[in-house]
Design a protein around this nucleic acid. Structure first.
Length: 922
RNA sequence: AGGACCGUAGCUCAGUUGGUUAGAGCGCUACCUUGACAUGGUAGAGGUCGGCGGUUCAAAUCCGCCCGGUCCUACCA
């Protein structure tokens, strides 16, 4: 084996081997276990959040596969309507053309071309993470088969009266020229103004003052509203306003929505350009005057002077014009939230358009019941509240998008504007007896991408066709996802799946946190704090990292800042840590749904952990290869105390890791495994094997027992660790398996370890704990007295029990080797010891003679420290026991424990004080 | 405004149904190249568990209030 662990050298080979051999496919046997990947955006590349999510899924999948489940991990990507269309439009732009010049058909061809070239990027990266999905079943939301499912769902929902078309106010993106959902609108806090305008009353009796943050919309005002109980304005209700500039007469109405205490208490109402005003407009039957075109430029419903103006230019002009008329009362600074398009970054307009909607209430009712009734469980549980609160206040879902890339809506219109929904034009004609003389035109719009991803769990399995895969793997077992798409996706999957499949899409939703940088900042390109998981795996030099982080940066100032920050944080660039270390870091931080702050210091620690495992395995192989390890099943071996102990500890480690998997606490699983490998197996057990293997007098049976245990515990540990660190465990396991008497082509398909109660040996555990305490006690004296580890010491044991004596006799060789002892002498009660430095293991005194080794003052200082500590302990416990209430009310065993403790502390204190007296008298 | 989550060592994080001396990794200090590993070993320093109250024999843990942070939802035009 290589002297140090070299991840790059093994990962690629093993991955190709696994994939080529088809190990990722379901076995066809055992209990079904299925995860559907949340389809990453096809335009995307793998970021830290994906890395985290995929690593979690892969661990769960590998764990269940090894447990013998019929395991399917279905992978795929999402066509991402807006994002993909934007990417390709940018390419066209660079070529000096655009989609309109190309035409719809050619444009879509171009998108497909692009998808073929670039769409594999993210799946290639997924492979680098060691992900083990069934690649043969990879799906894309625009696949033919999937399209059938999407179409079917649309048609059935339409037939069932759950899809309708309507003219409503939507979130309009004036740059992308499409409706977008509420969830794609980000409300940003902005500093703005509140303009106060005087609106003259028609009867000439004066004016009232309205306040607005959006002056340009006044051109579309169709009322002014006041609160019905507002005495200041009661006399105005029913009168009318002469709307300036637009020169229209509009009513003054009363509505409880108005807040008397805000601004002047008078609100201008623009039903076509504000969601609240829209509702008020409906309540009062107000006309809706749309003042914008698709670009949010002013249209012909506005006075000629404004027509064609861009919305913000129009704002300035409205303000100036009103000011010129003496109608601008004042302008005050005002903080407000501005709706911004998530993708386009421009201000979103509430805009009246014809759109398709899903009537969500009936679907939501069922979806709520599924979670309330426990058919679906969220982990952690608190996310259920988030889900409920959204579901209970759900709005109808606008599913049409004015894009070209996506699932085109299967609806046709005749010249009269009648709409016909069906699979294709022929079907529509046949069904509605429309002759060839009637021209039909398909709806230009496509469906919201989330409409198709809502069918992901069953659509990917071949629905509407009813096949074996669908029967076996649906509902899926668990959905692993971030909380940020619970509304976008999780909720919609639950609604649509319940409606069409009459069953839930998944039983458990495991919600993980967001990956942030080590400071808790969100990773973003503009902050320049993005880490690429692949760079953590392969490493990257500083210059490449800097140019990567600043690529495409337009602002020189920002670019310089990011460069500086990057050079400071990674002066040496990023080292190559390997996939397993990256994955382990994710797991160690994957506690209950909270965000994780990714600190490069952690990954370095886990790279070291991989190296530790590598080198420990090297030691094991060196000592077992070409020897008899009992691989043939022979039983002529004998287990040492250390062997029994490590086997026992292995059972407990297995329990803890399995517990971590079943409760989705991969941080606890990884911690338990880490501690077992490093602290139990490497720090103690490997050291404890040396006195046996290197002892010429040890029996063959005992040596064989030790070698057998070394290799078998390692073999089981590798299987235990495999779901978390697939590559290194496979590499080592291949060498270990013949020596452990294990068959199998790959660790991936080897059985997962099962703890056996019978192998838990508390006697061995207690004995080894004693051995460890003795060794640590001696080392502590050595460490504090600056005695070299190389110096062999004589030690004396005094005041020990018969149990101590037995343990000493049985473990002399362990103690001598691990504490570097010259000899151990047991002193009977009546024997006087040499003047010594002392440590206690229970009542047993461990004595290291001072002669020539230990300075009197140093030992006195050490004793003082120890005595001080014990005095505090005694004081604390005495205080507790002196409290009558504690003694009366606390449970018996707790009180007894305190009493035992006190006795122990007092005994230790006495012994230490005696020592001090003796040494001080010197 | 409402809600959720978080605040534990210099940093990143664990801490189960309240009950040993509150733990880990990184970093730090001292010593050590000993025959798996310096990506290592041994020993050690470092915490009034955000603050104040309360419940309890006993609170990092349960309850209330406050402070600080993150996020979500809804927003007053």
């Amino acid at each position: 084996m290589e002297k140090t662990y070299q991840p790059g050298a093994i990962e690629k080979n093993w991955y190709e081997n696994w994939e080529n051999k088809g190990y990722f496919a379901p076995s066809g046997q055992g209990e079904p276990y299925c995860i559907m990947i949340p389809p990453p955006n096809v335009t995307g590349s793998l970021h830290m959040g994906h890395g985290f999510q995929e690593s979690i899924m892969d661990a769960l999948i590998r764990y269940h596969r090894m447990k013998g489940c019929n395991t399917l991990w279905q992978v795929g990507t999402d066509h991402a309507g807006i994002a993909t269309q934007m990417v390709v439009e940018r390419l066209l732009d660079a070529d000096g053309t655009n989609r309109h010049a190309l035409g719809r058909e050619k444009f879509i061809e171009r998108v497909w071309e692009w998808k073929e070239e670039s769409g594999g990027h993210i799946t290639r990266q997924l492979r680098r993470l060691g992900a083990s999905p069934d690649w043969s079943r990879e799906r894309f939301t625009m696949d033919d088969g999937f399209y059938e499912a999407v179409q079917e769902v649309f048609i059935r929902l339409y037939q069932d009266g759950l899809i309708y078309r309507g003219k409503r106010l939507v979130n309009w993106d004036p740059k992308l020229h499409t409706a977008i959902s509420d969830l794609e609108v980000i409300n940003e806090e902005k500093k703005g103004h509140l303009w106060h305008f005087k609106y003259p009353l028609t009867d000439g009796s004066g004016h009232l003052v309205v306040a607005t943050t959006r002056p340009e919309t006044m051109l579309g005002d169709t009322a002014v509203a006041v609160h019905p109980d507002d005495e200041r304005y009661a006399h105005l209700i029913g009168k009318t306003i002469k709307l300036p500039l637009a020169d229209r007469e509009i009513p003054i109405i009363a509505d409880e929505y108005v807040d008397k205490d805000f601004g002047t208490g008078c609100v201008k109402i623009t039903p076509a350009h504000d969601f609240n005003d829209y509702e008020m407009g409906q309540r009062h039957n107000l006309p809706m005057i749309n003042i914008f075109d698709d670009n949010a430029h002013l249209n012909t419903n506005t006075p000629e002077a404004y027509q064609g103006m861009e919305r913000f230019a129009a704002r300035d002009k409205v303000v100036a014009d009103l000011d010129a008329l003496g109608l601008l009362e004042k302008v005050v600074d005002h903080d407000l939230k501005v709706p911004m398009g998530d993708r386009s970054g421009v201000v979103i307009e509430p805009y009246l358009t014809n759109q398709w909607y899903v009537k969500t209430q009936p679907l939501a009712d069922e979806a709520i019941k599924a979670v309330e009734g426990g058919d679906i469980n969220f982990v952690p549980k608190q996310y259920e509240n988030m889900y409920f609160s959204w579901m209970r206040d759900i709005q109808d879902w606008c599913i049409s998008r004015q894009l070209w890339w996506g699932h085109r809506i299967p609806a046709w219109y005749d010249d009269q504007g009648n709409v016909y929904v069906g699979r294709d034009e022929q079907e529509v004609r046949a069904k509605h007896q429309l002759g060839d003389d009637i021209s039909l035109k398909q709806d230009e719009d496509v469906l919201d991408t989330w409409f198709s991803s809502g069918l992901w769990t069953f659509g990917t399995l071949g629905w509407p066709e009813d096949n074996d895969f669908l029967k076996t793997f649906h509902p899926s077992s668990v959905l692993v996802t971030g909380f940020d798409i619970i509304f976008f996706w999780v909720a919609r999957m639950i609604m649509l799946t319940l409606y069409f499949k009459k069953e839930v899409p998944f039983h458990t939703v495991y919600v993980h946190g967001l990956v942030r940088d080590s400071q808790g900042q969100k990773m973003s390109k503009s902050k320049g704090n993005v880490l690429d998981p692949i760079d953590l795996i392969d490493g990257i030099d500083l210059e490449s990292l800097v140019s990567k982080r600043t690529a495409g940066m337009m602002l020189p100032k920002l670019k310089a800042k990011i460069e500086k920050q990057t050079r400071k944080e990674f002066p040496e660039g990023i080292a190559s840590y390997g996939t397993d270390a990256l994955r382990y870091t994710y797991y160690s931080l994957a506690s209950t749904g909270r965000d994780i702050n990714f600190d490069v210091g952690r990954i370095e620690g886990y790279r070291n952990f991989c190296n530790k495992l590598w080198n420990a395995s090297n030691y094991v192989l060196m000592n077992t290869e070409n020897t008899d390890t009992g691989a043939d099943g022979s039983t002529d071996f004998e287990l040492s105390l250390a062997d029994r102990w490590i086997i026992s500890r292995l059972q407990e480690a297995e329990k803890a890791v399995i517990e971590g998997f079943t409760t989705y606490r991969l941080d606890l699983a990884s911690q338990a495994l880490y501690d077992f490998i490093w602290k139990d197996y490497c720090d103690w057990y490997l050291e404890l094997t040396k006195p046996v293997l290197w002892d010429d007098n040890a029996s063959d049976a005992r040596k064989k027992g030790t070698r057998r245990t070394l290799i078998r515990v390692l073999e089981a540990t590798l299987r235990l660790a495999h779901p978390l660190m697939p590559f290194i465990t496979e590499e080592i396991w291949q060498r270990v398996k013949p020596l452990a008497g294990v068959e199998g082509e790959t660790i991936m398909l080897a059985p997962y370890p099962q703890p056996e109660e019978a192998k838990i040996d508390s006697q061995a555990t207690q004995d080894i704990e004693w051995v460890k305490e003795v060794i640590v006690g001696i080392r502590a004296i050595r460490g504090e007295m600056n005695i070299s580890m190389a110096k062999q010491l004589p030690v004396f044991f005094k005041n020990g029990s018969t149990e101590d004596k037995r343990r000493m006799e049985e473990n002399t060789q362990f103690l001598k080797k691990l504490a570097t002892l010259e000899n151990i002498t047991w002193l009977n009660a009546d024997e006087e010891a040499l003047l010594s430095a002392t440590n206690l293991v229970g009542k047993l005194e461990i004595l290291v003679p001072m002669a020539g080794l230990i300075d009197k003052d140093a030992e006195l200082a050490r004793l003082d420290k120890e005595i001080g500590r014990l005095e505090k302990d005694v004081q604390r416990v005495e205080g507790k026991l002196g409290n009558a209430k504690f003694v009366d009310k606390a449970p018996e065993d707790v009180v007894q424990k305190e009493k035992d403790k006190l006795a122990e502390f007092k005994d230790a204190l006495n012994k230490m004080q005696d020592q001090k007296t003796k040494i001080a008298a010197l």
